[in-house]
């Protein structure tokens, strides 16, 4: 199929960006969206132009590196699918596709479609871990964990930190990401010790990074490639309120 692509090009963080229009021909419906971009980039290199910069790594939908805002939706039109797992059969011959980087003050553009998501790393550093003595791993059954809690914790841990929630949110809020990380640990006995300080420290870091606040539009859940539920945001709110009222830092 032949497609028209309108892609955001920006030389660096300071430069003023703009859309460039490209034509790609003979695209197979079995290609992934990123493979289609590889074809476009080869075409650009052959023409002596600079290829488009975009984030990608595993191309298996599990690393969270790819991050394209495609025709108004983070990771494109398919439900619970990352950009790398979006395939060209989602489009038909003659379509025009607009591709933009994640837009958020806390995610400045590095180049073209690549944005700086280190704000997420700093939120994790603020409390998204457990402090344990090193040594041999314990026997798995030493710590009994409720099955339902284990399942919910696991569902929250499915977050790949891609930032689609921030990209989708009208407030550029990172609450779904943060709530997944807080829930994942708060539900388990291993995370219980630092439960109160963790939530307060991570929320503080999130605010410092310049993310907006949550107004419960639920766009994040709708666009999350891993189907992280806004139920985690409810838990985050409850954890935060409990921590503040019980005199946690």
């Amino acid at each position: 199929m032949n497609l028209t692509l309108k892609v955001w090009r920006q030389q660096n963080a300071q430069a003023q960006g703009g859309f460039e229009t490209y034509q790609v021909k003979d695209i197979s419906s079995e290609m992934s969206f990123l493979e289609m971009f590889d074809v476009l980039n080869e075409q650009l290199i052959n023409e002596g132009k600079e290829p488009i910069t975009f984030d990608h790594d595993c191309r298996e939908g599990i690393c969270g590196a790819c991050s394209m805002h495609i025709n108004g939706q983070p990771h494109g039109p398919w439900h619970q699918t990352t950009t790398c797992q979006l395939h060209m059969r989602a489009y038909k011959d003659g379509d025009t596709i607009v591709v933009e980087p994640w837009r958020a003050k806390a995610f400045p553009v590095i180049k073209d479609l690549m944005v700086d998501r280190r704000a997420f790393d700093r939120i994790i550093q603020a409390g998204g871990y457990i402090s344990v003595d090193t040594g041999n791993a314990q026997d798995a059954n030493n710590l009994p964990v409720d099955k339902h809690k284990a399942d919910e914790s696991f569902a929250a841990a499915a977050c790949i930190g891609c930032g689609a929630c921030v990209a989708a949110c009208k407030n550029s809020s990172a609450m779904l990401f943060l709530s997944a990380k807080v829930s994942h640990l708060a539900l388990l006995p291993q995370g219980d010790v630092e439960r109160k300080t963790r939530v307060v420290n991570m929320v503080e870091q999130m605010d410092k990074e310049g993310f907006g606040s949550c107004t419960n539009t639920q766009a994040c859940e709708a666009e999350c490639p891993k189907g992280i539920s806004v139920q985690n945001i409810r838990r985050l709110n409850a954890e935060y309120i409990r921590s503040v009222f019980s005199g946690g830092e």
């Binding site: 859309f19 805002h69 108004g72 939706q73 837009r103 666009e223």
Partner: peptide, 16 residues
């Protein structure tokens, strides 16, 4: 103010 540059294309009512 948390999104100084907006999107050219928005999802409309697809996600919220």
């Amino acid at each position: 103010a948390k999104r100084p540059i907006g999107y050219a294309k928005t999802p409309g009512n697809k996600s919220s």
